[in-house]
């Protein structure tokens, strides 16, 4: 795929964003890295596309895979790729778009509740998590830690199904 817009133009930056919005999150492939808020910035400097991304969790093993996918995509557009990883501002689940939340829900993962302001050394989630299968609020946390760093495990007391939920950070 070769870019059709003039080099460095705003249209070209938009093309890169569009192309990168087809890069799936390797651990939750129904959503992409743009709507998850992982890709923060795209700039063009001559032949180089400079991308800024931020990890969801600092130990996230998908980080390298995402980085490589981003590089592959911009190279296919004819750019040299430079990916910068930043920690600030720290990624928040509040950045996940409404559309992505809908996709997570359909995939069977309860989308995150709004992240609470930091209070004290620990934070407890106050709002109940809604079952992605039957919609009941009568659910319990089974494990704050799940199959990936960003999720917790719950069970629905109504339909009795276990499910995963995105941790609110």
């Amino acid at each position: 795929m070769v870019s059709l817009s003039p080099k460095g133009s705003r249209a070209e930056v938009r093309e890169i964003w569009e192309a990168l919005s087809r890069v799936p999150d390797p651990e939750i492939p129904v959503v992409n890295v743009v709507e998850m808020g992982i890709l923060r910035e795209v700039r063009i400097d001559g032949d180089k596309a400079i991308l800024t991304m931020t990890p969801t969790f600092s130990g996230c093993p998908a980080l390298h895979a995402i980085r490589e996918s981003l590089e592959t995509v911009v190279r296919a557009l004819g750019f040299e790729a430079q990916v910068q990883i930043v920690l600030s501002p720290p990624w928040s689940t509040d950045w996940i778009t409404a559309e992505a939340r809908e996709k997570l829900l359909r995939y069977g993962i309860a989308p995150p509740n709004p992240a609470l302001a930091e209070a004290g050394l620990i934070q407890l989630e106050l709002s109940p998590t809604r079952c992605p299968r039957c919609g009941s609020f009568d659910t319990s946390v089974k494990n704050t830690f799940g199959p990936t760093l960003c999720k917790s495990i719950h069970v629905c007391n109504n339909c009795l199904e276990p499910f995963e939920s995105f941790k609110a950070v």
């Binding site: 600092s58 130990g59 600030s88 720290p90 930091e118 050394l121 620990i122 704050t144 830690f145 950070v169």
Partner: peptide
């Protein structure tokens, strides 16, 4: 030192889950 301040803010968000659990 801004890079340290940024890292501390990032890591703290994750640490809260640990403390809740081990406590």
């Amino acid at each position: 030192y801004q890079p340290l301040a940024d890292a501390a803010a990032k890591i703290l968000r994750e640490e809260r889950f640990h403390l809740q659990h081990t406590q």
